[in-house]
Amino acid sequence: TTVVVGNKKYTFDNPEAAEKFAKKVAKKLGATVHKTNGTFKVK
């Protein structure tokens, strides 16, 4: 599962961990999490 934050990509074996990370980053940046085909995008 990939999490994309700006131009950085983070890969997780565990989708739950990926989602948690994405939400944490989004909260910090005041952004939102978008899920597309198993990829979480923070923007």
Rank of each mutant, 00 (worst) to 15 (best):
K20M: 12
T1E: 04
T2Y: 13
K24Y: 14
K9W: 11
K23F: 15
F40N: 03
G6Y: 14
K41T: 15
K28G: 05
T11H: 13
K8M: 11
T1N: 08
T32G: 05
L29I: 11
Y10E: 00
G38I: 03
H34F: 11
A18C: 02
V5F: 05
E19H: 08
G30K: 08
T2R: 08
V33E: 02
K9Y: 11
T1K: 05
V33W: 05
K20F: 10
K27Q: 11
V5A: 03
G6M: 09
V5C: 05
V42A: 01
T11E: 10
A18K: 00
L29T: 06
Y10M: 04
G30L: 04
A18S: 02
F21L: 03
N14Y: 07
T39C: 07
V25K: 04
N37K: 07
H34T: 14
A18V: 00
T11V: 13
A17Y: 11
E19D: 05
G6C: 07
N7K: 12
K9I: 14
T39R: 06
T39V: 15
F12D: 00
N14F: 08
A17M: 12
K28W: 06
N7F: 10
G38M: 04
T1P: 08
T39W: 07
Y10T: 02
K43W: 14
A22N: 00
K24F: 14
K8N: 09
K35G: 05
K9G: 06
A26G: 04
T39Y: 13
V33C: 03
D13W: 10
F12C: 05
F40Y: 11
T36D: 15
G38S: 06
K28I: 09
V33I: 09
G30Q: 06
G38L: 04
V25Y: 04
P15M: 12
F21Y: 07
K8W: 10
K41S: 13
G30V: 03
G30I: 03
L29M: 11
F12E: 00
E19S: 06
A17Q: 10
A18P: 00
N7R: 12
V25S: 03
T2Q: 10
K28N: 07
A18L: 02
P15Q: 10
F40P: 03
K43H: 14
V25W: 09
T36N: 09
L29A: 04
T11F: 14
N14D: 13
V3R: 00
K23G: 08
P15R: 08
T32S: 08
N14S: 12
E19P: 01
V25D: 00
N7V: 10
H34R: 06
K35W: 14
E19A: 07
K28A: 12
T39E: 15
K35S: 08
F21R: 00
H34I: 15
T32I: 09
A26N: 01
V5D: 01
V33R: 01
A31K: 03
D13R: 12
T36A: 10
K24N: 10
K24C: 09
T2L: 14
V5P: 00
K27H: 11
T11C: 08
T36V: 15
G30R: 06
T32L: 06
K23T: 13
D13T: 13
V4H: 10
K41Y: 15
V3G: 00
V4N: 06
A26E: 01
V42L: 06
G30Y: 04
G30S: 05
K23A: 09
E19G: 05
G30H: 07
K28D: 08
K24I: 11
L29D: 02
K23I: 14
E16N: 12
G30E: 04
K23W: 15
K41P: 04
A31D: 03
N7L: 10
K41M: 15
E16H: 13
K43I: 15
K41W: 15
T36Q: 14
K35R: 09
Y10L: 04
V5R: 02
F12Y: 04
V4W: 14
A17L: 12
Y10G: 00
F40H: 05
L29G: 03
T32R: 07
A18W: 02
N37D: 14
T11W: 13
K8L: 09
V42R: 01
N7I: 11
A18M: 01
N7Y: 11
K9V: 14
K27T: 09
N14G: 07
T39H: 15
T1L: 06
G38C: 05
V33Q: 01
V3W: 01
L29W: 08
A22I: 02
K20P: 02
Y10N: 01
K23P: 00
D13Y: 11
F40A: 03
G38K: 05
